[in-house]
Design a protein around this nucleic acid. Structure first.
Lengths: 209, 209, 209, 209
DNA sequence: ACATAATCGAGACGGTACGTCAGGTCTTTTT
DNA sequence: AAAAAGACCTGACGTACCGTCTCGATTATGT
């Protein structure tokens, strides 16, 4: 075991933990990550700077924790609100419709600066810091991708998706273009775009034989 | 008239321009962009710091220029070496083969740290700074994407690609997953992956009717 | 009534009081006062930091108490060892010899780092913090000076010291130069120096008429 | 030679050097040394903090330089104002009067907080940091003491001071009590006290034979 | 060819944020 | 109730870079 980097979690003040997490998301959404200083986060949280450095190794780690926490909370709420279904890609039997529903929801989410700014910052940080990126991928991205894989596997059994399709690659076909447009700001993210992605991916580019 | 942002370009020392561009790519590749200070670049280039700030608006801009320059030089070399064709997606008549060739080449390029590190840094910077990102997209990404669009349009005429396919979306289907894997380091980039992407995109996920 | 600053002294743990006092003098002597943190003293004493702040108002106060305690203990020992006389300037009838004896003893004491370092720290603190300095003077310095005054007064009765001499000023003539040399480290403190001080002060600078 | 701690003095901005020196004395005099932060000095001087750290090794060093500079400037002014005499102990032929004049002037100087506070801080710092104290003594104290030694030597030739008097010790008899009273704040510094010191020191404590 | 003016390397400058350290207070658990 | 332990807020520290601003010492025209 590595020597404990952080002190006893037992004594940790839950009040300040929450306050800091709340305090980091707003300024990142408003002024951007680069302009969000540790000092400012601490001040807004009514916390000391040292309290932040005691529990998080870096500014980016604070943001990640805060974002993960919020995501988890929102997922829990969504599950509670829904008719008991687990958060993930729905399965109504109509694959195209299900994928479009999820991708449209993702489009809406990403068009909200409160989500876009943190994700953008976390992705940028992860692009440059491999260790950080790994955590981002493991904890945020992969769980999400797995829900697509599950849905696609389910669609393969009745033959709605060809058996020789690799679900992982199929997922990337659907999801990567969204990330691409959003992160690089090439073109706007719309529901129409989400639909078009699904249609193109399902039917393929080649003419039917 | 706005006061000239940059001084007489005529007087510019080509020696220092090249020296600075050379001096920025290495440390970015080795230590990462964040740890590459302007001071370090200036020292390595045997230049004064002011010389950098005189000609470039920011550290990121230096990197972008250096990278664009190198890309342009390499493209020129490639064209010279090739059978006279313009750099872009080749057109042998076999669309799948052509796409696989280009994507495989891209995979090789991106697996080279000398390319990966700068692109990573530029993407990260662009993700956070919209203006910078715009330049990155315009000057580096879009020209490349246009070559795919051209090739796909060419394939639509003989009916190798369905007429109702939107080339732009098709391109993203092919290219975005590469960026996704590379930037987020989810899974390794291989030739097999490039081939699989082309196959899945062309044939689609749904079974042939 | 003012709210009790300190808690019930009855409950106070004598073990920790002594442990803290012991724990402060060593590091001050070795590393200097500035580098002696409250945390370090507490750790060395096996005490909690709050235990220190509960009983002393500041770091300097701990040092002062510790030093006063040790001084008192040493004086008691000296008195016990001596021929029953109270600690102070002896009175053998020979004023010059008595003064030299005391000043030589003081020189020896001050040349011991175990005394020098704390006194130095306390003086420095007192120089900057008037309230603290006042306590230092009252509790440590003045009692000592009074013993000289007493001895000088005794010498005035038989005419060994002129009647128009102000004892207080005479004391300062004898004692201040020692403090001066020690604190400012201008020249070494020696027995010869102590003797010379006494001789010069008694006989004066002017020639005898 | 030690590797240059400080950068090329040639390029040093005289403006900021003076500004910093001016900016440190006022708050030290008003709020005390402990409450005078580097940041505050920098702000008051309109300088960056790094500019201070570039040229001075510590906060105390800034204060010392500032104080030395001011002392030198004042001495120069005094010499210019006087009838051509060098700053030092005057020599009218009447030793007692000359000494009283100088000591009275010293008393006045030390009763001015603008002098007292910095000297107090410098002495305290020097008491704890030997290297610092050495500089303080060499550059400020010893030159002053030498002027007394000179005057006393001059008084020895005509026999106004006994030949067997050691001037250095005589000086300390006169000067140390002032420092003692001032630094330890035992009793107020007055002209009467200065006079009494001179009288006692010259005539001695013992009765004239 | 030469004056002259802009660029160059160098590096100090005013700043901003960093991450650390210690002070003194508050809280939790143990004695 | 006081103790040990240790997290908390505060605030100063000294450092690292930023981007700007001088400074002589080179260039490179443009007369």
């Amino acid at each position: 075991m590595s020597p404990r980097r952080t002190p006893h979690a037992t004594r940790r003040s839950d009040r300040s933990r929450r306050a800091v997490q709340d305090a980091v998301l707003t300024p990142v959404g408003e002024a951007g990550y680069a302009r969000t200083t540790v000092e400012a986060v601490a001040a807004r949280a009514g916390a000391g700077r040292q309290t932040i450095y005691r529990w998080w190794p870096s500014r980016a780690a604070v943001l990640m924790d805060a974002f993960l926490d919020r995501s988890a909370r929102r997922a829990a709420e969504a599950d509670a609100a829904g008719e008991g279904g687990r958060s993930g890609v729905p399965d109504t039997g109509d694959l195209a419709a299900d994928l479009k529903a999820v991708l449209r929801a993702t489009v809406d989410e990403l068009n909200d600066p409160a989500t876009d700014a943190p994700v953008r910052a976390l992705t940028a940080e992860g692009a440059v810091d491999p260790e950080f990126g790994a955590r981002f991928v493991e904890e945020l991205l992969e769980p999400r991708l797995r829900t697509y894989v599950t849905r696609l596997r389910a669609a393969q059994r009745p033959g709605q998706v060809r058996a020789d399709v690799e679900p992982r690659i199929a997922v990337e076909l659907l999801v990567a273009p969204l990330t691409h447009r959003r992160l690089l700001r090439t073109l706007p993210l719309t529901h129409a775009y989400a639909d078009a992605l699904v249609d193109h991916a399902l039917r393929g580019l080649s003419p039917r034989a």
